[in-house]
Amino acid sequence: MEILDDYEINRRLEDLEGWEHKGDALHTSFQFENFKEAFSVMTRIAFEAEAQQHHPEWTNVYNELMISLSTHDAGGVTEKDFKLARSIENIIDSAE
């Protein structure tokens, strides 16, 4: 999988509200009403990540979920990261 350059990453980020490019990854965070809601969304994301065979780095503290996406095999951001980011956005949107 080919690493995307900064121009292409920034262009694609225009379609993903709340995501940013830092280092070799895409980053975002979400806040939910409570831990149960956050964990429920994490479970849905986990099933999608497994289906795509691409897994996020994430942390969860109570109602906040922080996500980083990077294609470690390639050493940076690739199309796989944007595909999963769009799927995550769809999951978040359907949870609201």
Score class of each variant (00 low, 15 high):
E2V: 06
L4P: 01
Y7L: 02
Y7Q: 01
E8G: 08
I9A: 06
N10V: 04
R11I: 08
L16F: 09
L16G: 01
L16A: 07
E17D: 10
G18P: 06
W19Q: 00
H21T: 00
K22G: 03
G23I: 05
G23V: 04
D24M: 05
D24V: 04
D24P: 00
A25G: 02
L26H: 03
L26S: 04
H27A: 11
H27E: 12
S29E: 05
S29G: 05
S29N: 11
Q31W: 00
F32S: 01
F32Y: 09
E33S: 08
E33L: 11
N34I: 02
F35E: 11
F35D: 02
F35V: 10
K36Y: 13
E37C: 11
A38P: 01
F39I: 10
S40K: 06
V41C: 10
V41F: 10
M42P: 02
M42K: 08
M42E: 10
T43L: 08
T43E: 03
T43Q: 10
T43M: 11
I45E: 14
I45G: 10
I45Y: 03
A46C: 05
A46D: 12
A49L: 06
A49F: 09
A49D: 10
A49Y: 00
E50Q: 09
E50D: 14
A51L: 03
Q53R: 15
Q53C: 04
Q53I: 12
Q53V: 07
Q53F: 13
H54R: 07
H55T: 05
H55K: 15
H55V: 14
P56H: 13
E57S: 09
W58V: 14
T59P: 00
T59W: 10
N60A: 14
N60W: 11
V61G: 09
V61T: 15
V61N: 09
V61S: 15
V61I: 14
Y62H: 13
N63K: 15
N63L: 12
N63I: 10
E64P: 04
L65A: 07
M66R: 09
M66A: 11
I67D: 05
I67K: 02
S68N: 15
L69W: 00
L69N: 04
S70V: 09
T71L: 12
H72Q: 09
H72G: 08
H72W: 04
D73M: 03
D73H: 03
D73N: 03
A74S: 07
A74G: 07
A74P: 08
A74Q: 13
G75Q: 02
G76N: 07
G76Y: 01
G76R: 04
V77D: 08
V77W: 03
V77H: 03
T78F: 06
E79I: 15
E79F: 12
E79C: 08
K80D: 04
K80H: 13
D81R: 08
D81F: 03
D81S: 14
F82P: 13
K83S: 07
K83G: 06
L84M: 13
L84S: 05
L84F: 08
L84T: 03
R86I: 04
R86Q: 13
S87Q: 15
E89R: 07
N90L: 15
I91F: 04
I91G: 11
I91P: 04
I92Q: 11
D93W: 13
D93E: 15
D93T: 10
S94D: 12
S94T: 15
A95L: 00
E96I: 09
E96Y: 02
